[in-house]
Design a protein around this nucleic acid. Structure first.
Length: 635
RNA sequence: GGCGAAGUAGCUCAGCUGGCUAGAGCGCACGACUCAUAAUCGUGAGGUCGAGAGUUCAAGUCUCUCCUUCGCUACCA
């Protein structure tokens, strides 16, 4: 509370515009919104940036699949993100899109700086390229010739590429991370980054030929190439400020917030890029975990999965935001469930917080005609209550500074519970029966009002709407509303007229919730339509497994010898987790017979067995309804 | 296989640099109260802190081994 005005610049990642927002995007963005609102409450100078990442081959393809131009497509997706943020009451200052000219201009400037600095080298690069990852893979990295991420076969491509000399900054970055414990937080992610840096990180491919990927930013010194996704995207954090001449004001105070899956680009690529470009390194990278979706009895295959984001409409934005912030310990994973959300709402928001307001208003209505009577007769027990609240802003601030949002909220809840206990202890309904205790009654009730006022300030960043509603019911207006005023007491003017309204957070019937069955239909995601000619390129055949053995140098692979009509083939297959080598002999299965052979961990695989896998990880290999001779073609 | 994280009350989880009888919330049981949204307040339930060993005067908290789970990664075309 003693600190002066600070500057706070917070960012979410710019989300890749090839799909609609999901709970993960929503969490990061809500979190940043809450953090920014908190700093605003504190009186700090804040800036909140979010946006979308709109370049790259994947988006080009996604646009094509939807019969749209890339620009139309990204306009649509960016619109969806914006409307989702609106519906979550996210109040960002700027929404940057990497296709905006203001961004492209800065990307080119920074590229040029890095180039002039001698950190860009040119090389011809040929290799196996995965479309899904938008990157090349070395033979070593591939799994049986497949992309380890997408399990798809990369295509061979040869092209000229520019590389950023990232490796040369490795020692510097290691040192930087070690010297600055607050650089990557929480600590476990700094350790993870150091782990990555123990091995050479290589140079970073930063371009793609423009003739193949027109949807990108051309390199300033070579118009025939466009920049690669990360080099383009990461710069948004800087370009958005730069385009508004805000670098000096905000850049030194960046707080990047990301989920753990993009630690490497943000913790490794980004600082080395900045270093090379001669830009100050951002001070903080804050990394959070995942929301694991606990579907309980739900199952995708049964078609009754819910989208967590839909629950914000069912239970209200404020409660939804509260749950996200309260139930995740920053840095760790958390499990998301509707039941968890509902229980949280009932216990914290309905029973403790909302009910405190309701009972206070009830008593005011009954005993003082709804007017705030004022504090006249203070007793020892009052001081306890008062200090529980007035010390909160300081505690709250400390927790926020440490990214312990769950604890900050818990601290407020603890005070709220104390207020409920205070009522039980002081027994206003007893005081009301004795005219001699009127002053005491009035004091107690006013203390309750003050407690609610303080709580409403502290919880405002998380629940801006409900806390506003609370103040409205209390009739509070025209008195200071900021963090400092939450450390003061007795601010509500005497005779303020309160107005009891609807309960802030209605209780949820948990029993009924458990009874609910179907929630939402799930739609399968289909690949783009193919023609019969496309299909005809594939050759499926019946093969008989003669024998199978474990791959000597792999954990998950079985090596199968199969009979394919007159031919014998070796197929390496990743089904060891589900099938024992012994039980496979004699089975007839369907294979893809004309896949380009690949070496998998040293053994050449000449085909692929068709198998089905569900989202729970169950796997079943294809079989045939009737016995049929091996080698038969499947169509 | 390599690297990393994690395994603490029925559930969700806190427990930093080792220290008195291991905590919170929810749920549960019993009791109290009535201003209130069947809420609130009090009390309790007693978890070998994944297993084993070690260091120490003292270990969820450090070391080692093992088991399990989850990421990333190396082989599931």
């Amino acid at each position: 509370m003693t600190k002066g005005k600070e500057t706070y610049y917070a960012t979410t990642p710019i989300f890749y515009a090839n799909a609609e927002p999901h709970i993960g995007h929503a969490y990061t963005t809500t979190l940043v919104d809450v953090a920014t609102r908190f700093h605003r409450l504190k009186g700090d100078n804040t800036y909140f940036l979010t946006g979308t990442d709109e370049h790259g081959e994947k988006i080009q393809k996604a646009a094509e699949a939807n019969n749209m131009s890339p620009q139309e497509y990204t306009d649509m997706i960016a619109g969806k993100f914006k409307s989702t943020w609106d519906s979550l009451d996210i109040r960002y200052d700027d929404f940057v899109r990497t296709t905006q000219e203001r961004h492209k201009k800065v990307v080119r400037e920074i590229l040029q700086k890095v180039y002039d600095n001698g950190d860009i080298i040119f090389g011809e690069y040929g290799g196996l390229y995965c479309l899904g990852c938008e990157r090349y893979y070395t033979d070593k990295e591939l799994k049986d010739g497949k992309c380890p991420q997408h399990d798809t076969k990369p295509e061979y491509r040869s092209e000229e590429n520019y590389f950023f000399r990232m490796e040369k900054y490795r020692p510097w970055l290691q040192d930087h991370i070690k010297q600055n414990p607050d650089f990557i937080r929480p600590e476990r992610y700094a350790n993870e980054a150091l782990g990555i840096l123990r091995e050479p990180i290589g140079d970073l491919s930063i371009s793609r030929p423009r003739n193949r990927v027109p949807w990108g930013i051309p390199l300033p010194w070579d118009e025939n190439h466009v920049t690669y996704v990360w080099f383009d995207a990461l710069i948004n954090y800087y370009s958005a400020l730069d385009s508004k001449n805000l670098i000096d004001e905000y850049w030194p105070h960046v707080n990047h917030f990301i989920a753990k899956d993009i630690l490497k680009p943000h913790g490794i690529f980004w600082p080395t890029m900045l270093k090379s470009a001669g830009i100050d390194i951002y001070p903080h990278l804050n990394v959070h975990g995942y929301w694991l979706i606990d579907q309980g009895k739900m199952s995708k295959s049964k078609g009754n999965v819910i989208n967590p984001l839909d629950l914000k409409d069912k239970y209200g934005v404020d409660a939804f935001r509260y749950y996200l912030l309260k139930d995740m310990h920053f840095g760790s994973d958390a499990s998301f469930s509707e039941e968890g959300l509902a229980e949280r709402i009932n216990s914290d928001l309905a029973n403790d917080f909302g009910n405190l307001l309701n009972r206070t208003l009830g008593m005011l209505g009954k005993y003082t005609e709804g007017k705030v009577p004022g504090i006249t007769k203070i007793e020892e027990i009052d001081h306890d209550l008062i200090s529980s609240f007035t010390k909160l802003p300081e505690i709250f601030t400390e927790y926020f500074d440490n990214l312990e949002f769950d604890k900050a909220i818990s601290a407020v809840l603890e005070a709220i519970r104390k207020a409920n206990k205070y009522i039980a202890d002081t027994e206003p309904w007893v005081l009301a029966k004795d005219e001699n205790k009127k002053a005491r009654l009035e004091t107690v009730l006013t203390n309750c009002v003050e407690a609610l006022r303080c709580a409403s300030i502290l919880l405002e960043p998380v629940m801006p709407n409900k806390t506003r509603e609370l103040r409205k019911q209390l009739g509070i207006k025209n008195i200071p509303f900021n963090l400092a005023s939450a450390a003061e007491w007795d601010l509500v003017p005497v005779n303020t007229q309160t107005q009891k309204g609807e309960p802030l957070f209605p209780r949820i019937d948990l029993e009924a919730l458990k009874e609910e069955t179907v929630v939402k239909e799930v739609v399968l995601e289909h690949k783009p339509e193919v023609t019969i000619d496309d299909f005809a390129k594939l050759e499926f055949r019946v093969a008989e497994i003669l024998s199978a053995e474990e791959h000597p140098k792999a954990d998950k692979l079985l090596v199968l010898n199969v009979q394919l009509g007159p031919e014998k083939r070796t197929i390496v297959s990743g089904i060891k987790e589900w099938y024992k080598a012994k039980e496979l002999a004699g089975k007839k299965v369907i294979i893809v017979a004309n896949l380009k052979p690949v070496k998998l961990r040293g053994i050449l695989s000449e085909g692929m067995i068709m198998a089905a896998e569900d989202e729970d990880g169950n796997l079943s290999i294809s079989s045939l309804d009737r016995d049929i001779i091996s080698g038969s073609e499947v169509r």
